[in-house]
């Protein structure tokens, strides 16, 4: 694979509008790109023989509400080239007002559930996803819990259920009706 500065030149030429920058931390390159261009970038990384990242290892997201970033949310793709055992990270940045970006489902089927998970936990929408609905939380859940403005203990979702009492008798000696 190309080194960092050459990769920057190639990608800047190929994606003049979408490309933001490439950063490096502990030997791992991260390509930053604007959300709407991510599918084109992923397709290039998958099909171009210079990159040949044939395996999508994971999709997740980070909410940058309390941390510096290019926008509020970044959707993170971990790609793997299995021939050379090389990895790269793609970060697609989406704004809070319209958290929407194209789905990677046409390239890798594993994107299906992982994008549903990102949608459920962060509220980032994926266009052209075959079946975008909540996966972890129940359908009636109102919030997106992994956003930074949602409290750890929740907003009372866990306290509101039907209470069942013993229907006949009582089994503990301390309770009424047992000698």
């Amino acid at each position: 694979m190309l080194p960092k500065d050459q990769l920057t030149i190639v990608l800047r030429e190929k994606f003049p509008e979408g490309f933001i920058e490439i950063t490096e931390f502990r030997d791992m390159l991260t390509i930053h790109i604007r959300g709407e261009h991510v599918l084109k970038l992923l397709r290039t990384l998958k099909t171009d023989p210079r990159f040949a990242f044939n395996f999508l290892s994971g999709i997740t997201a980070v909410d940058h509400l309390e941390m510096e970033g290019h926008a509020r949310f970044s959707v993170v793709y971990h790609l793997l080239n299995q021939h050379e055992a090389r990895r790269i990270v793609v970060r697609a940045w989406v704004h809070e007002e319209e958290p929407r970006l194209p789905s990677a489902y046409p390239l890798w089927k594993t994107a299906d559930w992982q994008e549903r998970e990102v949608y459920d936990l962060f509220g980032v929408e994926f266009t052209d996803h075959p079946d975008l609905m909540r996966i972890m939380n129940p359908d009636y859940f109102e919030y997106h819990p992994l956003r930074k403005d949602y409290p750890l203990q929740g907003r009372g979702e866990r306290d509101n259920f039907k209470v069942v009492k013993r229907s006949i008798g009582s089994k503990w000696p301390s309770e009424k009706g047992f000698e």
């Binding site: 290892s57 994971g58 980070v62 909410d63 309390e66 941390m67 594993t110």
Partner: peptide, 30 residues
């Protein structure tokens, strides 16, 4: 299968974001 933790740090003593790459989820999706 492949299990890894993706940790994002903002420089404080707690991670800013922890994500597991869960092999069970991804295997089950097939």
């Amino acid at each position: 299968g492949e299990l890894g933790y993706f940790i994002v740090s903002d420089g404080s003593r707690e991670p800013y974001r922890v994500r597991t790459r869960p092999p069970s989820l991804i295997n089950y999706s097939a």
